[in-house]
């Protein structure tokens, strides 16, 4: 459930959604009694952000907004300017042009006030290895204002590190370090989390765990998450919206569903036996369909509602169907299409 952190949150609750009605789910929040509240103001607003080194623009007029409760993915091939953008947003890199507003506060003009709302991990969560997990959190706790010491225990619980928190970080696995990294980022109850390649080096179970935790935090506390990655399938599973950056320019910002469901027809793979018989039968029955025989079965390009029909036809004809797979055009395909393939390597 959402915990209001004093006036900070209330200021941003502009209207009750029933008055507006049509807003997308990412800007809606559920509060205790189920009343939906809409936050109209973006937590993070990036406007014309540019990083110029010499004559080269590494990041070129990037603009976007991230709203409360939303997980925003920042996707791009290596060297596209993802990390540079993130470094500018958290103040590690100087901004050449443009500005970043966090909860309406300009990062350029008022760094300390703006950054107080940000929790971040830039690339790997590198913590003090010679300190215990708890001492690391204590260290960062001392650097934020107005946070009770009990909050340290609270974030330790959130990330599930209670058992090992008093051990030295050098004994931690990468997954545990990632959790500790997240704990330090959540310590001051930020309004936005900024994570640069957070799943780098994690094993599949770790990635899943991390993803679930982020989703939970975003849904339950209205935390906005800005996450960069080049692991495309990962972004697809985690994010609400995705911005694609290439050669320093933000070329597209879309809802994840828009990316993937853009086409009406899907490629559906039917795992069937016997193959030749099924092929000739289907070709006879549905001469208009695009059918391809593959190693395992038949790939059909059909609309969603045609899937059960086709299946029924096969079954009644005595053809054994072992499985039906939606060979969805993944975000990866779309991504490669947009960024022109070769760039990613």
């Amino acid at each position: 459930m959402l915990k209001f952190e004093g006036a900070r949150s209330e200021k941003n609750c502009i209207t009750i959604s029933s008055l507006v009605g049509t807003k997308k789910s990412h800007s809606e929040l559920k509060v205790g009694n189920g009343v939906k509240i809409l936050r109209k103001d973006p937590v993070l607003r990036v406007q014309g952000l540019t990083k110029q080194i010499g004559a080269k623009k590494i990041v070129d007029k990037v603009s976007f907004e991230v709203y409360p409760g939303e997980i925003f993915g920042f996707l791009g091939p290596n060297g596209a300017g993802k990390t540079t953008t993130i470094r500018m947003i958290v103040g590690l890199s100087a901004i050449s042009e443009g500005d970043v507003w966090i909860k309406g506060v300009s990062l350029k003009k008022n760094f300390e006030q703006a950054i107080a709302h940000v929790g971040g991990i830039v690339e790997n969560p590198e913590l003090y290895k010679f300190l215990t997990g708890y001492q690391n959190l204590l260290h960062f706790w001392r650097m934020c204002k107005g946070v009770s010491k009990e909050r340290i225990d609270e974030v330790v619980r959130i990330v599930g590190l209670e058992k090992r928190i008093h051990e030295k970080v050098k004994t931690y696995s990468l997954g545990m370090r990632q959790r500790l990294g997240l704990a330090q980022a959540l310590l001051h109850s930020p309004s936005i989390l900024i994570l640069d390649e957070p799943t780098n080096g994690l094993d599949p179970a770790g990635i899943r765990e991390f993803r679930d935790l982020l989703k939970k935090l975003a849904a339950e506390t209205g935390l906005a998450v800005f996450v960069s990655s080049h692991i495309l399938s990962e972004m697809e599973l985690m994010c609400d919206r995705i911005g694609i950056i290439q050669q320093g320019k933000l070329i597209e910002v879309k809802e994840v569903r828009d990316f993937v469901d853009a086409e009406e027809e899907h490629a559906v793979l039917f795992l069937i036996d016997p193959l030749p018989e099924a092929d000739s039968y289907l070709k006879k029955m549905f001469p208009d369909y695009q059918l391809t025989v593959t190693e395992d079965g038949i790939l059909a390009k059909i609309k969603r509602e045609q899937i059960p029909d086709l299946n029924a036809m096969l079954v009644t004809h005595g053809i054994r169907v072992y499985g039906i797979q939606k060979a969805t055009k993944t975000l990866e395909d779309r991504f490669l299409e947009i960024t022109g393939g070769g760039q990613i390597a």
């Binding site: 958290v90 103040g91 590690l92 760094f111 300390e112 006030q113 950054i115 107080a116 940000v118 971040g120 991990i121 830039v122 690339e123 790997n124 969560p125 590198e126 913590l127 003090y128 290895k129 960062f140 650097m143 934020c144 204002k145 990294g181 330090q184």
Partner: peptide
Amino acid sequence: SWGTVKLLLIRPVS
């Protein structure tokens, strides 16, 4: 060299 500077400098402290 530890990389911790990235966490140290993103705090509300100059």
